[in-house]
Amino acid sequence: MKKNADPAWPDEVHALLQDADVRQVAIVPDAGHARLIQLCEKDKSMRVVRLTTEEEGVALLAGAWLGGEKGVLLMQSSGVGNCINMLTLPIACQFPLPMLVTMRGDHGEFNPAQIPMGNATQAVLEAMGVMVKRADSAADVPEMVSSTLRLAFNTYRPVALLIGQRVSGAKDFRKLTRSGPL
């Protein structure tokens, strides 16, 4: 599968997070977020908080806002399922919560186990009352991240940006069975 790869988008997203004064970056890693996570870890103005499960990030960032700090939650689409009841908090209390979600179970997926949650991600978020936006090309990502940050912080609500699997490329498991450096 050909990647629709523009290696610059994580750098642009990191700059957008800086401009938005994001201080807490809550993560459960995904390959699609690897470079952005590296950039945030190197940034002394940001605290990267590794989570054991994504719902911890929803609660963490409610606490951050109570104390006057902005945050962002980075995860893959399977993690959305782990967040559902905790989304009560930003919905009932109107906490800003930008979520940058890299999709699995989407364009060109190889792993059947990624399909149920990936295919349901948008519907499940919307059923909870979360506003959902999509970016399906690398060129769209920075503009849509900017939009997501503004919607979340200016209108006090959870907003999820689903970054399609076309952007980061589907993992080729067969290729990974061959020996040699990944």
Partner: peptide, 17 residues
């Protein structure tokens, strides 16, 4: 509500303040 989240809200708040 948000059962299971109290300690993590505390963490986000403690880091911010």
């Amino acid at each position: 509500g948000a059962m299971g989240g109290a300690a993590m809200i505390g963490l986000g708040l403690a880091l911010a303040q």
